[in-house]
Design a protein around this nucleic acid. Structure first.
Lengths: 197, 197, 197, 197
DNA sequence: CATGAATGAGCCTTCATTCAT
DNA sequence: AATGAATGAAGGCTCATTCAT
């Protein structure tokens, strides 16, 4: 279906060149159609990329949700590490998406920014709840040192953010090593002595 | 001097709107000159923003260097926290610069990207050395739990990155709270029990 | 068809004002369209004039070829004179074309020059062969004094060139007189006494 | 003297690139001054090239005049041939001048064209008189077949023009051969049998 | 003499978009 | 659903030129 092809290539070019350089005509050319044909499917350039963005976010959302739900087995250490790994896997296995993602977050017309932020917040909210539970569980089970839950959640989110940024800037191998180092220190830091093996 | 005014406003508009939207004509208008006048000072649009970027990086470099050198007094805890604070202060006190910075890093013509990465790496290299020393010192003085130095450095860089990303996305008050939470957990995690007060 | 109209007017303005002064906007204005519309038909300004030039050359080529082929009847004197006349007729009946032609030959971006020269050479080559035959025939029939064939061909080409240059510089009436004078002397010069009536 | 340097380089760039491409700034750069400095010596771009052109023509004029005056010795054949040779020598020894010359003749703003033509005409007028005398002399001395003087003059001018055009288009060696062939045929054509050796 | 700064005019070009087909 | 033709808007850039210094 042409519509999907357009979206796919729009997303790809967005990743490669950013919003402004991802010209309708350049997209059309790569799709193999003429520029005005795009308007048969999308009202606008903004509309097209809005859609692309929503799809992307939806996809991400689904993935994260799905990943998290599957992380029921295992102890807290495994759960947390698993989250970082799922995150890494998602971005590493389809780096263009992450790029597009970042690009849109920065280069989108201001009108759009609110929606971007809203979706982001929702996602974060969800994540917070999950992490809350996990850490609560961890403390109860004495896997994790007793600390304010919010602090723990914040710290993990910070690790996630840091790891995410490095995921963008470093090549995969260097990134993987980093991730491990970070995780080692982090886990050693938050866990109770009993669980540091 | 007009040249500086151009650079300043170019940087500002870059932060606000990104490279493509920071039009030469829009810059000129805000400076109060006519567009072609810009060419009396810069060869190109690219040249202008190249200069802006280099200045920015130079400035950042100087600041970090300066900050770090002054962090000789105090124990390791103070030193590390001080670094995070200086970083925060730098970006919070002139948020446009940070924005420009991010924008250029993502939206610049590919030719330029190598230079961006090189400068980045150099900066990181320098930071690594400093952190290395600090952590080594911390371990020797029993302020910090004995762990591989590289892991510690990596973890701190990750915290820095995470904190940096949040600094961009959250409003200042929310950010400050986050920073404190993160720091609490982090320091509790890496320090020896004696130093956890 | 708009495309042809653009070409026609481009050619005309080229003749009148030269490549640089034949602005896309001035062409568009005369065609009655807006400047960007030209890009629906031509990739470039260069592309447009390239096309114009090739058409011109093609047209010239066709004409010369056609003219020559029809000059089978008559004796050698008539044939040669006919060639000069056809040449004159071509340029006099559409002087803009000749002007454009000259203009492009001189003012075109260097990239293009090779193609210009190549086409020119091909045309000249063809002409040489024809003249060769005619002169050979002339000598055999004792209409023309026995001289090296190559010299005769060269001399005739020189007359053509001279005549061509004068065709550009003189107004038509003056040119016609000149042509006759030149032809008189030339024919008297190369013909055998029997044929000088 | 800077003024002369400007003129020289203006002329050179004119030859190489034509009037429009011979930018004041590009001239200034090659001279080693800043663009506005040109205005210390010339009122205008047009003024500059006007001067350049007048100098060129003056120079040409002088040369031709001088050449011709020195062609008093020798018989008519030698005189005529000498003229062609001087012409060739002039253009071959400083081909840029000829290029500039042609360029200006074609690409100059229309205002200027009249002066160009006037000077040209004057030169031609002068040449005509000289040729008139030579041919008259030639006929009287039975070196040249009796023909209308005007025709002879016209024919020689035509040869000059043709030869000139070929001088521009052919490389030197090819040109020289051509010139000889043309001259052979021409002289054989106009001379009396007695003088054809 | 020379130049730094500035500018009006204009050029080529690209882009998103529309509309009739 | 697709496209050829057209366009308003704008962008980056160059050029000749001026003027104060």
């Amino acid at each position: 279906m042409t519509k999907n092809k357009i979206k796919k290539i729009a997303s790809k070019q967005l990743a490669e060149k950013g919003y402004e350089q991802a010209t309708l005509s350049s997209i059309a050319k790569e799709v193999g159609i003429k520029t005005p044909s795009i308007y048969a499917f999308f009202k606008n350039k903004e509309d097209l990329f809005m859609t692309v963005y929503r799809d992307m976010l939806e996809d991400y959302y689904q993935y994260i949700q799905h990943s998290i739900e599957q992380v029921t087995a295992g102890n807290v250490k495994e759960k947390l590490y698993r989250i970082l790994q799922e995150l890494s896997h998602y971005h590493l296995s389809q780096p263009e998406k992450t790029q597009s993602y970042m690009r849109l977050a920065l280069s989108f017309p201001p009108t759009f920014n609110q929606e971007v932020k809203d979706t982001f917040n929702e996602l974060e909210q969800h994540l917070c709840e999950i992490l809350h539970e996990i850490f609560l569980d961890g403390i109860n089970k004495r896997e994790i040192k007793n600390q304010p839950l919010d602090d723990l959640v914040a710290s993990f989110l910070c690790v996630m953010d840091g790891v995410f940024l490095e995921l963008i800037y470093y090549p995969e191998d260097k990134y993987r090593k980093r991730l491990e180092q970070v995780w080692n220190v982090y886990w050693l830091g938050i866990s109770t002595p009993l669980n540091q093996n």
